[in-house]
Simulated scan of single mutants.
Amino acid sequence: MDKHQEFRQQVRQWLRDNCPVSMRTPAAEDEQIWGGRHIEFQSREQQQWFERMRDKGWFAPDWPIEYGGGGLDRKQAAILNQEMTRLQCRPPQLNLGIWMLGPVLLEFGSEAQKQEHLPRMARGEIRWCQGFSEPNAGSDLAGLQMKAESDGDDYIVNGAKIWTSYANKSDWIYALVRTDPKAAKHDGISLLLIDMTSPGIEAKPIELISGESHFCEVFFENVRVPKANLVGEVNGGWSVAKRLMQHERAAIANFGGESESPYVLHQLAKEYIGEHQGRIADPVIRDQVVSIDINEKAFALTLRRTMEEAKQGAGNGAATSIFKYCSTEQQKQKGELLLKILGNRALGWEGDDYSDQELAITRDWLQSKTLSIGGGTSEIQLNIIAKRVLGLPA
């Protein structure tokens, strides 16, 4: 048995011993745990699962131990993820800092920034949000206008961000700001880390078609931010942002709705449409469910292959656009198929006439439409793939 096989056996046993049985089921929206200053647990088992994974350093398993991570290599981190999936373990916490900002700080951050922010991320103590898009700078992100003007040891920040997920519940925000309005639009941008409790910040939720309000507008009026919170070089934020967006697209690609897994699709199709000899009775629906299952497996294998290539230095950062595009489009396809399976049971919005699962599926279907917008629209991803992956002319 090689070291990775031995590690897999150890992880498998540890998860069996430490992941409560109640944490081995899909988590509803209101059962998800986000790290942060004001974390709340709904059950003792939820808190136990959080604390056990936190104490192992497995919120960020492949980060260095000195920054609060688990110190695992990429292969070991992949094994941990595979075993958690196999046991159907819920994510112990959700945290944009770990998925997106953390890897960028490891690459571009100062040692002081790493020591201040990474351990708190890795322990789920701070909740982060992302301040990129603006009312007039969405797909053309480099057109952003929120400005940061130098004032001694600080920047004075003024402007607004929009579509900022969970800004009203977050502790800190990493935001792109314009530090040189006279420079070419890609060259005058910097990345700042901003405490959301700073005077002059106001977050207002935006109600969505799904009935949720996790997107926000965020307004900054004369917000004072220490220059020590600048990530990378002043006016060098575009390079940092591009790397962060690669991590964002990879995170979006990996973050699928558990209630829409192929297994659940099979079960729901049998329940609502019927079954014959152990199979979904309707051959057309059966074919569509199987196609989604095949696509999911092909996607997972491609993702693993690309990760292995990246370890050898052969990765293409722009390939994350492929993963983001395919994953979000597949999520929308699954949402459409679920509505087809449920039929008129997917028409509910609230009330006792529909089950919680039926109501959740309808809202998830609406929510899936946002996935091909956030993190860069599908059209933008196709442009990136054409230019930077396929090498097609502009």
Rank of each mutant, 00 (worst) to 15 (best):
G200Q: 02
I201R: 11
E202Y: 01
A203K: 13
A203I: 00
P205S: 00
P205M: 04
I206P: 02
L208K: 13
L208G: 02
I209T: 12
S210E: 13
G211C: 06
E212L: 11
E212Q: 09
E212F: 10
S213Q: 08
H214I: 00
E217W: 10
E217A: 10
E217K: 13
V218E: 07
F220N: 02
N222Y: 05
N222H: 14
N222L: 03
V223Q: 09
R224K: 14
R224S: 03
P226T: 09
A228S: 15
A228N: 06
N229W: 05
L230G: 02
L230Q: 11
G232S: 13
E233I: 01
V234P: 01
V234W: 00
G236V: 11
G236L: 14
G237C: 11
G237W: 00
W238Q: 09
S239N: 15
V240L: 07
V240W: 07
A241G: 12
A241S: 13
K242N: 10
K242V: 11
R243D: 06
L244W: 06
L244R: 05
Q246V: 03
Q246N: 13
H247S: 05
E248T: 08
E248V: 09
A250M: 14
F255S: 04
F255Y: 02
G256W: 06
E258L: 08
S259M: 14
S261N: 12
Y263L: 13
L265R: 06
H266Q: 15
H266C: 12
Q267A: 15
Q267C: 15
E271P: 00
E271L: 11
Y272W: 10
Y272G: 10
I273S: 08
I273F: 09
G274W: 07
G274C: 04
G274T: 02
H276N: 12
G278C: 06
I280D: 07
I280Q: 08
A281Y: 01
A281L: 08
D282P: 00
P283K: 03
I285G: 04
R286F: 05
D287S: 13
D287V: 03
V289F: 01
V289M: 08
V289H: 06
